[in-house]
Computed example of a mutant assay.
Amino acid sequence: MTSRLLAYRPEMEMALPAAALPLQQEDELALATRLLEVRTASDVGAYLSHLLATTGAGRQLRGTPLARPLRQLLGQILAPLLPLHGAAPERLRRMARIFGMELEGLSPEDKEFELARRTVQLICSVATELARHGGASGAPQPKVAAALLQAARTLAPGLLKHAAQASRPPAAGRWRREGGHIVVSGC
């Protein structure tokens, strides 16, 4: 037996805080399965509350000024994407682009599940980022938005592009055809 094995002492390892621990695979799978059951906006709120109550970072944020803005922002992002179960193929492709995923060759059920898993990973990453760097002072909304941007850079790069397009004001104006020309007014 090598001296390295004899010298190993697990009690000497540093314990990580709950927020720094990654989500266990079993928990991620269970949360993704539960996300597939979400149908309405009220279900989204209940799901987010459950998810944040069962993860280390979420428990760390409970009762802080950051918890409510976090649930609100995540709810605004999730509501248009749900329900996942039984979603049209075009919607699944759009979500896959948001997460930067390639889902060709998977069955519709597997696509839904992989998107649910990535959504859970994003939510947990936002909560972890916020728990690490949120702090107690200052306005909570900018901190939540910054945590979302940080998590989206790696897990959902298409979300940044999608959010930028959604924040643009819609084009206004009227048009009419005059002979072979289109005349636009009010722009």
Rank of each mutant, 00 (worst) to 15 (best):
Y47G: 03
R153T: 06
L78W: 02
L78P: 01
L31N: 02
Q60C: 10
G180Q: 15
A20T: 12
G56Q: 05
P142K: 14
T128A: 13
V126Q: 09
L16H: 15
P80F: 08
R177F: 06
R97L: 13
P22D: 05
V144S: 03
L78S: 07
K111S: 02
T40L: 05
L155Q: 09
L61E: 01
R91Q: 13
Q24F: 12
L148Y: 06
G63H: 09
E11K: 14
G75W: 05
K161S: 14
V120F: 06
E112V: 07
L51F: 07
G56K: 11
G58E: 02
L130S: 04
I123C: 13
L122T: 03
A46S: 14
L115W: 09
R117Q: 13
R153W: 09
A15C: 11
S137D: 07
V144A: 10
H181L: 14
L70M: 11
L106A: 11
R9M: 08
L82E: 01
L5N: 07
R117S: 08
Q60Y: 06
G180P: 00
F113H: 06
P22E: 07
I98R: 01
E37C: 12
E129S: 13
P17S: 13
D43K: 14
T64C: 04
M95N: 04
L61T: 04
L82Y: 03
L78D: 01
R97Q: 15
L35R: 04
I123E: 03
G45T: 09
A145G: 00
M95D: 04
L84M: 08
P169Y: 06
G56N: 05
D110M: 15
G135S: 09
C124W: 11
G173Q: 06
L159Q: 07
D27G: 09
E11P: 05
E129T: 13
Q60P: 01
S167G: 07
L155Y: 01
G186S: 08
T2D: 04
T33L: 11
S42L: 11
S137M: 14
L122D: 00
A57V: 03
R117P: 01
P10M: 08
A15W: 12
L31W: 03
I182Y: 12
A19R: 14
L5E: 09
E104L: 15
Q141D: 09
K111I: 02
S185F: 10
V183M: 04
